[in-house]
Nucleic acid binder design. Structure first.
Lengths: 202, 202
DNA sequence: GACAATACGGACCACGGGTCCGCTTTGCAA
DNA sequence: TTGCAAAGCGGACCCGTGGTCCGTATTGTC
C-alpha cells in the first residue's frame, strides 16, 4: 500500500531510456531493428536496468506511446471542440479519427512498433479499448447507425499503423491528402445512417 | 529456363509438410507457438527439407494460404454472381468482402499467422495487392464514391485477421452476426456515395 | 550397375528477448 | 561524518527460434 518513490538514479535512468528510445525509433528504418540492447547502449545503461524499469519490450513501447499520447488524451477528455466532449457527435467523430491519423503520422515507427509488438494482438491493448469505447459512445449518438461497436472497430481499422505507414511511406501519399481521404470516408459512413431509409426505398 | 520437375521424394515431402502444418495451425492456440521445428517434426522431415522447400517461414505460410484461397480466387475470377465478374458493382463489393471475412473466419490462425508474419507489413504481400486492386476497380464503378483506392483499403481493413480474431474469439460474436455487421457497414459506405449530394444540401 | 544430380536431416550458428547475481550507489539515522 | 541496509546497477549468461551447412542417402538415367 505504501507507494515508495523511486530512487534518484532510477528516475534519471528511466528518463534517459525514454529519451534514447524515442530518438532511436524516430531515426530507424524499421521498428524491429531497434533492439533492447541498442536502447540500453544508447541510454548508457545496462540491459538489466532497462528491463527492471519497463518489464519487457512491450512495456517500454507502451510507456513511450502513453507519453506521446498524453496531449491528445487531454484534448479529447477536457479540451475544447472539435475534440472535446462538448462537440456534437457528427463533428466529433471525424475530429477524433483525424487526431488518431495525425498521431500515427507523427509517430509512425513508434505506433508501428507497438501494434506489431509480436505476441497478443493490438486489440488487447487498453489504449485501443479506450479509443474504441469512446468512439462507440459518440457513434451511438448518431441516429440510424447500424452497430456502433462494429462501426467503431471498422473506422479505427482504417487508421491502423501499418496501413498508415504503407500509404504515407510506400505509396507516398501526402499528409493532407490522407487526412481528407479519411475525412471523406468517415463522412460517408456517418451520412449513410441518416439516409438508410431512403436507400431502402429504391 | 528449363523447368525441371522436382524429384518424387521432394514432392511427397512437400505435401507432407503442407498437411502437417495445416493441422498444426488448426489446432494451435496461437500461431506463434507453431515453430518451424514443430512443423518439420510433425511432417516427419528434417528442418533442412522444410526450408529448402519453402525458403522461410513466410514462404510456408504463403503456400498454405494460397492453397486455401484457390477456390475463392476461382469463384471471383470466373465464377457466377455474386462473386464473379458478371455481378453489378453494388452487389459485388459486399459479396467480395463477405468472402474475405468468411475466409478469415474459416482460417483464423493461418490468416493471423500470415498477417503478423514478423517483418514487412501485410500490405507488401501480393495477395493483398490483388484483393485491393480488384476491390478498387469494382468500387470505381460505383458513382459518387470519393477515392476508391482509399475506400478499398479502409474496407479491407475492416476484415483484418486480428480484428476478426478479436471479434470472433475474445468478444465471442457469432459468425452470422459478424457477417451482417460487415454487410451493413459496407452497404452504408456504398450508399453514402449515391447520397453525397443530398447530405451536402442539409 | 554405375554415377551424377538431387534431396535429406539434424548438428550447428546468430541473434534477440529476458534473467541473475555480485557489486555500487543512495539515503536514512546515529 | 560515518555506518549500513535497501534499492538499484549492468553485463555475462541462458534459452528458444529462425535459418544454414554439409556429409550421407536417394533417385533416375545411361
Amino acid at each position: 500500500m505504501t507507494e515508495r518513490r523511486p530512487r534518484k538514479d532510477a528516475a534519471r535512468n528511466r528518463e534517459a531510456v525514454l529519451t534514447a528510445a524515442d530518438a532511436l525509433f524516430v531515426h530507424c528504418e524499421s521498428p524491429e531493428d531497434v533492439t533492447m540492447a541498442d536502447v540500453a547502449a544508447a541510454a548508457g545503461v545496462g540491459k538489466g536496468t532497462l528491463f527492471r524499469a519497463f518489464g519487457d519490450r512491450a512495456g517500454l513501447l507502451r510507456a513511450l506511446y502513453e507519453a506521446r499520447l498524453e496531449p491528445i488524451r487531454q484534448a479529447v477528455e477536457i479540451g475544447p471542440p472539435p475534440l472535446g466532449p462538448a462537440t456534437p457527435a457528427r463533428d466529433r467523430v471525424p475530429a477524433l479519427l483525424d487526431a488518431v491519423l495525425c498521431f500515427k503520422l507523427d509517430n509512425r515507427r513508434l505506433a508501428l512498433a507497438l501494434e506489431e509488438s509480436g505476441s497478443s494482438s493490438p486489440y488487447r491493448a487498453e489504449h485501443y479499448e479506450r479509443w474504441h469505447s469512446l468512439l462507440r459512445t459518440v457513434l451511438e449518438q448518431v441516429p440510424g447507425l447500424a452497430d456502433s461497436g462494429f462501426t467503431a472497430h471498422a473506422l479505427l481499422a482504417a487508421t491502423r499503423a501499418d496501413l498508415v505507414e504503407h500509404l504515407a511511406g510506400a505509396e507516398r501519399i501526402p499528409r493532407e491528402r490522407l487526412r481528407s481521404q479519411l475525412a471523406d470516408f468517415v463522412t460517408g459512413v456517418l451520412a449513410s445512417g441518416a439516409t438508410q431509409g431512403l436507400a431502402a426505398e429504391e
